[in-house]
Nucleic acid binder design. Structure first.
Length: 445
RNA sequence: GGAGAGAUGGCCGAGUGGUCGAAGGCGCACGCCUGGAAAGUGUGUAGGCGGGGAACCGUCUCGAGGGUUCGAAUCCCUCUCUCUCCGCCA
C-alpha cells in the first residue's frame, strides 16, 4: 500500500514503476481524488472548530445559569450540525475510495530489479559478489546418472508411498496421500528445516493459526485482489448466508507477518525473525492444466516459512541473509540449485525484490522453484499498521520480508529425484538420516 | 451451546452529558539534590489527519464502526475481544 503523500511528491517515479509492472499510470487520478479529500477535510475542520468553540461557551453559560445566552448560542451553531455530518460522511467516502484504489496497486520494484514482462526476463543471481565461479563452488553440483532418472511420482507410486488416485476420491485433483517411508521422509524434511532455522539461523519457532480473518490477508496483500486464489471456510455451514467467513492460509507468511500488526515495536527488538512449518492451501484457480501430474502443484502442501521484521535500514541486508538461510537448506541436502532475481513483471504483488531458488529436478530435466524470498519494504507494514519507534523520534513503518525455507513438498520431490537409485530406491541424504532413525535408504528392504 | 461481567494512555486505575486527550499512581526521560548512589524533589512523557519552512495551530481518536445531542469516555445500535459460572470436548 502506498503513502499518498509519497505519490504526491514522486508522481513520475510512481507512474514509471507501475509501467515496469505492466500497469497504466495512475498518479493524476489518485492525486485529484486526494486533493478533493483534503479540501473536504479543511472545510470540515473549520466547521468543527466553530462548533467546538460555541459548545464550550454553551457549557459555560449553563454553568452560570445563563439560559438565555445558552439558547442564543445554540441557535447560532444549530445549522453547523448538518454541515458537519455531511462533511464527515463525504470524508469517509473519499477516504475509503482512496484506500481501496491504493490497496489494489502493486509495490514499486527496487532500482536494481531487472525490468521484464514475464519469467523470461528473470536474471540468474550469483550472490553479492556476482561471481558465477564462487557460486558454483559453494553450491552442490548437478548429479550424474548412469540410467534415465525417473520423475518423483513414478518413484513414489512404485514405492507405494504416493497415492494420487485415492486422494482424488477423497478430495479431487491436486491432492495426494503420502504413506509409509515417503510420508516419513516428508516429515523428516520439515523437521530438519525447522531445526536449522531455529537452532542455526536465529528464527523463533511459531505455530500460528491456519485459519485467519480477512484483515491479515489484507495486511500481507492477498486481499482484496487475489480472493480467487484462496480457500475460504464458513464458521457455521448451517447458516450459510449469515456465517462468518474465514480463510485457510495460503502461506505462513500471512499469520507470521501479521504477528506485529497494529503495534509499535521498540527499535532495540528489531529485527524479529519468525519461522513456522505449516500446511498451505491454494486454490490456484488460474493455473488449471499446469503441472497436473505429481505433487508439484497441490491445493495443500507443507512449507517452512521465514519472516523478518526490520527497520528500513536493515531490510536489504536481511534479504541477502534470508536468501542465504534458504540456500543453506539445499546445500545441506546436497541438492543442486540456481538462484534467479525475478524481473519486474514476474514479481509478486507486495514485493520490492524477489529471489527464487530453483532446485534441479533430474526426472524433469529442469529447474523448479522451491523457495521464493522477498523484501516488501513498508508495503505490508502500512496495510497492517505495523511500526517501530526509533531511539529518538516518531514511529516509522517497519519493513517486512518473507521467504520459504523451503517448500517441504517440493523438497521431497527434489530429494527423491536427486537421490534415486537405479532399482527405484531412494538414498537418504546425510543431513536427514538422524530424522529417519538412521536409515540410509528407503524402498530396498 | 446457556447465563453474567467487562474493554480508558507504556502499565495500574478514576471518571455516567459540558473548558476531559482524560485525575491519581507506577514506569520512562531530563534536571535538581549527592563524593557517588538510593531516597527525595521539579519538569516532561500517545497516535492519525489537515495547514505551516519551522515554532506552532486546528481536528479526530477513551476496544472498532455507526447514531442521538449545541456538546459524548459517559446515552443508543452493530461488531470484535477478554473474564467468570454451567454444559460439551481433543
Amino acid at each position: 500500500m502506498f503513502d499518498i503523500k509519497w505519490i504526491r511528491a514522486n508522481a513520475d517515479a510512481f507512474d514509471a514503476a507501475l509501467a515496469t509492472r505492466g500497469a497504466q499510470p495512475r498518479s493524476a487520478e489518485l492525486l485529484a481524488l486526494d486533493d478533493h479529500r483534503r479540501q473536504v477535510i479543511a472545510h470540515l475542520n473549520e466547521a468543527q472548530e466553530t462548533r467546538n468553540a460555541a459548545s464550550k461557551q454553551i457549557g459555560k453559560a449553563k454553568a452560570e445559569k445563563d439560559d438565555q445566552r445558552a439558547s442564543a448560542l445554540m441557535d447560532e451553531v444549530a445549522h453547523l450540525k448538518s454541515t458537519i455530518q455531511k462533511g464527515e460522511a463525504e470524508e469517509r467516502e473519499l477516504e475509503a475510495n482512496l484506500r481501496q484504489k491504493l490497496a489494489e496497486l502493486p509495490n514499486v520494484p527496487l532500482a536494481d530489479v531487472p525490468v521484464g514482462e514475464d519469467e523470461d526476463g528473470n536474471v540468474e543471481y550469483f550472490g553479492p559478489n556476482s561471481s558465477r565461479e564462487l557460486a558454483a563452488k559453494a553450491r552442490p553440483p548437478k548429479p550424474e546418472f548412469a540410467f534415465a532418472p525417473k520423475q518423483h511420482f513414478e518413484l513414489g507410486e512404485a514405492l507405494g508411498g504416493m497415492d494420487f488416485e485415492t486422494a482424488a476420491k477423497l478430495s479431487g485433483s491436486r491432492f495426494v496421500v503420502l504413506k509409509s517411508q515417503v510420508a516419513r521422509l516428508e516429515r523428516a524434511i520439515g523437521q530438519f528445516m525447522l531445526d536449522m532455522h531455529t537452532l542455526e539461523h536465529g528464527y523463533l519457532e511459531v505455530q500460528p493459526p491456519l485459519l485467519v480473518r480477512d484483515e491479515p490477508l489484507y495486511g500481507t496483500g492477498q486481499l482484496p485482489k487475489f480472493l480467487a486464489d484462496q480457500f475460504g471456510v464458513l464458521k457455521d455451514v448451517t447458516a450459510e448466508e449469515q456465517s462468518e467467513r474465514m480463510w485457510l492460509i495460503p502461506t505462513a507468511e500471512v499469520p507470521l507477518t501479521n504477528l506485529v500488526r497494529e503495534s509499535i515495536l521498540d527499535e532495540a527488538e528489531l529485527p524479529l525473525r519468525f519461522t513456522a512449518l505449516t500446511p498451505c492451501f491454494r486454490s490456484e484457480a488460474g493455473s488449471a492444466g499446469r503441472d497436473t501430474r505429481g505433487m508439484l502443484r497441490q491445493h495443500q502442501f507443507n512449507k517452512v516459512e521465514m519472516v523478518s521484521i526490520t527497520t528500513p535500514e536493515q531490510s536489504t541486508d536481511e534479504h541477502e541473509r534470508m536468501l542465504a538461510c534458504a540456500e543453506k537448506v539445499l546445500s545441506r541436502l546436497g541438492i543442486h540449485y540456481r538462484v534467479m532475481t525475478l524481473c519486474t513483471g514476474d514479481m509478486g504483488f507486495g514485493a520490492q525484490k524477489t529471489y527464487d531458488i530453483e532446485a534441479w529436478l533430474p526426472g524433469q530435466d529442469t529447474y523448479r522453484e522451491i523457495s521464493s524470498v522477498s523484501v516488501c519494504g513498508d508495503f505490508q507494514a502500512r496495510r497492517m499498521d505495523a511500526r517501530y519507534r526509533p531511539k529518538d523520534g516518531k514511529p516509522r513503518y517497519v519493513h517486512t520480508l518473507n521467504g520459504s525455507g523451503t517448500a517441504v513438498g517440493r523438497a521431497l520431490i527434489a530429494v527423491m529425484e536427486n537421490y534415486q537409485q537405479e532399482d527405484g530406491s531412494i538414498a537418504i541424504p546425510d543431513a536427514l538420516q538422524p530424522y529417519m532413525g538412521g536409515l540410509t535408504a528407503i524402498g530396498n528392504s
